[in-house]
Design a protein around this nucleic acid. Sequence first.
DNA 1: GATGTCGGTCGAATCGATTCGGCGAATCGA
DNA 2: TCGATTCGCCGAATCGATTCGACCGACATC
Lengths: 337, 337
Amino acid sequence: MNIGEIARLAGVSRSTVSYALTGRRAVSDKTRKRIERVIAESGYRPNASARALKEGRTRTLGLVIPPASRALTDMQLGFVASVVEAAARVDLDVLLSPSGGDHDRSFERLVTGQRVDGVIVMEIRLEDARVARLQQTRIPFVTIGRTAQPDSLSWVDVDYAHLIGRCVHHLADLGHRHIALINRSQELVASGYGPGHRALAGFTEAITERGISGMSLCCADDAPAGHAATRRLLAEHPDVTAIATINEAALRGVQRALDNAGLRIPRDFSVTGVVAQHWAEDFHPPLTAADVPAHDMGSRAVELLLERIAEPESAARHVLLSPPIALRSSTGPARSG
Amino acid sequence: MNIGEIARLAGVSRSTVSYALTGRRAVSDKTRKRIERVIAESGYRPNASARALKEGRTRTLGLVIPPASRALTDMQLGFVASVVEAAARVDLDVLLSPSGGDHDRSFERLVTGQRVDGVIVMEIRLEDARVARLQQTRIPFVTIGRTAQPDSLSWVDVDYAHLIGRCVHHLADLGHRHIALINRSQELVASGYGPGHRALAGFTEAITERGISGMSLCCADDAPAGHAATRRLLAEHPDVTAIATINEAALRGVQRALDNAGLRIPRDFSVTGVVAQHWAEDFHPPLTAADVPAHDMGSRAVELLLERIAEPESAARHVLLSPPIALRSSTGPARSG
DNA sequence: GATGTCGGTCGAATCGATTCGGCGAATCGA
DNA sequence: TCGATTCGCCGAATCGATTCGACCGACATC
């Protein structure tokens, strides 16, 4: 069933059917009604490939996600979902590409095969080969997270440096003098993962500003690692009275280690950080934390990308999100003594 | 940069370039080398829309996911990731469509716009409007989960009935005589969610077979609901000594409620069920459970779909997965008395 | 030396839409 | 009533690939 068939059944030319559908030229009421009836009866819809070929755009966005081998975090998943939803709201489809390495066939198809009108790239590194590749081509793209030279790119990011700083100030206000930062995994940070680096920078700055003592450690993204890291922390640094973290997957282990050590939250120990709302609310007691606005990030990223597609030569735009710290019940005055 | 440009630069006709690329006809070594050099220098790749139009296939699969409003469970997410990976392995792309309702534009684009060669549908209901719609069109599709009349469709599913039955037998073998089933949310089950219904059926059958007492309750998919449900369960049915569940998101709340009641696992109380491996291992102590093989399901679904695409008239095929129950440490002999 | 075969290449048709120029009929003003 | 607009529709070109039939030269065969 193609446009020619519809034209034949309606007794008009193919161009008339096209104009009736797109409304780009006037078609008499009578003719349009007849065409619409034929279309409704036959269930015809224009072939997407043919339309894309002629129009030069696919009405599809590409989303580059980390490969499944590395499990996606809740935040990343929420982000994928929100991108897909935001795109669907403006009648765009989303093509997924799981790619990490430099020479990924699926990634190459995305950027050079004219399969998509624009690309969103997740989990950006400070030095990112994919960004370099995208810049070679002329395809519009937006990154989630910043590279080391972010000015010329359009991106959406969470202000981890500032937020972790705010967590430190909050804890310092409560009297805490020895604070630990639990970062993401060693490999991730070593590979130049921006949030890891910026969280550490913000932590260090705030610690210095308040003249208190802080230490930071990396921790793999799962509960057992969180448990081990916290146990070691408590053993080696018994004066630490609070933890700030950006590692949501480690939280459950952190909690168990504190339980096992007989430390009650928030009476004996405070915990805070920057994590997905879902994790903060699942913590016990509910976690005082900056909720990563994954949902916002998705729609803002789509918004920025659509701008770049519409106006490829326009100046790059940035969105740096800094959600408020939601005060729940996991932080309290420092233990005296 | 199109195929004509390449042909011009290489001094051959467009068809020769096409044959050099696809290898569907012989091309002399000399000519092919020249064409390959031109292509490498120009970074040319065939336009995906033009190719799809001519070939009549898009090399793209559609994946229908639940809308983001309803948060995806870990299992669903693992499944999406594994589908994308499996497709990438055979050089296929995946187009996402978040649709639940009957008249969803994104879903309609997928099934009637010839955007994809086949479709995988997640979170199937016993009566599913999307399946009915797909059957009207001639597009090959595979479902994750079964409808009420599953024989004529190709699907991949987990045998919840059997697995929950095995859990019950396992608990009965350990001497438990009063067992509770914690199901998924009320709405989900009421809307005809297959795993919910089949788990209940398997539970009831096994309970009857062993001549013991069982009760089942629905519970929203989050920790607080799990907490509330378990607390109520303990209060109203103090003789219950074990829980079986398919609701992984409720597990954390279940655990907390048991803790609060002073019940130690597995000494005083046993917990088991069918959940994603990740949740089973995060439980404390690690959960004896059938690990939902989300990763397997993704690749099997892609496999089945490719078969249907290649051979649309072939008989429907089914894959019913029944992973072994992994014995960890959350079940033990029933409390005496 | 005429005929047949085969490897290598080309030209043109094709997939299914959009879009531009043009053409006939209806409408308008003078 | 006649020229100028306007309206509604059509025909043909176009997007960028694939593919079929045909052609041509080289070589083998009888």
